[in-house]
Design a protein around this nucleic acid. Structure first.
Lengths: 138, 138
DNA sequence: TAACTATTGTTGTTGATCATAGCAATCCTT
DNA sequence: AAGGATTGCTATGATCAACAACAATAGTTA
C-alpha cells in the first residue's frame, strides 16, 4: 500500500515514539510502574524534597494532574511527603521507593542501550542532539 | 533542577514527539482536521478504494476504532464508500475531501520543512533514517 | 459442494489521560 | 497590612485507545 506519510520525519517521529513507549511500558510493568511513575521516581530521587509543582513544571504535567499520580506512589509506599512550610511539601523516596527507583533505572538504561543499538552506527550519535533541537527551544 | 532524564534519547524522543504533535495539531485545526484525519485523507487519496481494515493496519489503529474516525470524515462529506463486494467497502475522497487533502498536505509539508530547519545541519539528514530504524523493523 | 476458517465492519464498554475551572490556604513583596 | 502569586487539591468533561463480542461474508480446504 502506498503510504505518502513515510517521507515525513514528523510522522516517523510520532511512530517511533509510540513504538518505543509501548516497549518501555511493557518492561516497566514488570515492576508495577508506568512511565510517568518511573520518571517521577528518578526525578524525586535526584532532587529530594522537590515539590509537586516543580515536578509538574519539569515534566509538563499540570498541577491538578499530579495529584492522582503522586497519590498512587504514596499509596504504594514509594514516596513520602515532608511539610516544607505551611503549604509546600517536599517529596522524598522511601526505602522501598529508592529500591524501585534503582530497578526502574536499570530497566531504562538497558532499554535505552538496546534502542540505540538498533540505530545504524552512522546515525546513532546524531539522534539525541537532533531530537533535543526539536523541543528544547520551543 | 537536576533532570536525570535528559540523558536519554528515548525520553527526548517522547518529548520531541509531543511538542511537534501539539504544534502540527494546532495548525491542522485551522482547517478543522486532527492529525488522524489528515493521515487518513492522505492515505485514501493515494489509495482510492482502500478498505477501512487496510487503513487500520497501515496506521496501527484497531478496526473497531476506525469506525468513529471514518464516520466523522463521512459526515463531514470528505469521503465516500463504495461497496466492493458483500462485506468490504472501498473508501474514496469526495471533491471536498480532495480539496481538504490538498490543504492538509500543504500544511504538513510546510510544517515538516520548518521542523527540519530547526535541526542543526550536521544532524538533519540523519534524523529520518535513525527514527525509521526504531520502528520499521520491530 | 459442504464445512471450516478468516476477514470485515460494527456495537458497546472500559480505563487511562489530559484540560479546565474553581477553591482555600499560604507565601511573598511592597 | 494588603494584593497578588503560588501551592495543593476537588471535581468534571472530553478524548482516545484497548477489548470483547457479533453477524455477515469471503476464501480455502476436505
Amino acid at each position: 500500500m502506498d503510504d505518502p506519510l513515510r517521507r515525513y520525519p514528523g510522522y516517523s517521529l510520532r511512530r517511533a515514539a509510540n513504538a518505543t513507549a509501548a516497549e518501555l511500558a511493557a518492561r516497566l510493568s514488570d515492576i508495577g510502574l508506568k512511565q510517568v511513575d518511573a520518571s517521577l521516581l528518578l526525578l524525586i530521587g535526584a532532587n529530594p524534597d522537590v515539590t509537586a509543582s516543580a515536578l509538574g513544571r519539569e515534566l509538563d504535567i499540570q498541577r491538578a494532574n499530579m495529584v492522582p499520580l503522586l497519590k498512587r506512589l504514596e499509596d504504594a509506599g514509594l514516596i513520602d511527603r515532608n511539610p516544607l512550610d505551611g503549604k509546600s511539601q517536599g517529596l522524598v523516596l522511601t526505602r522501598d521507593g529508592e529500591a524501585r527507583r534503582e530497578q526502574a533505572l536499570a530497566i531504562i538504561e538497558r532499554f535505552e542501550a538496546e534502542m540505540l543499538a538498533r540505530v545504524p552506527a552512522e546515525h546513532r550519535h546524531h539522534l539525541l542532539p537532533a531530537l533535543d533541537a526539536l523541543w528544547r527551544n520551543p
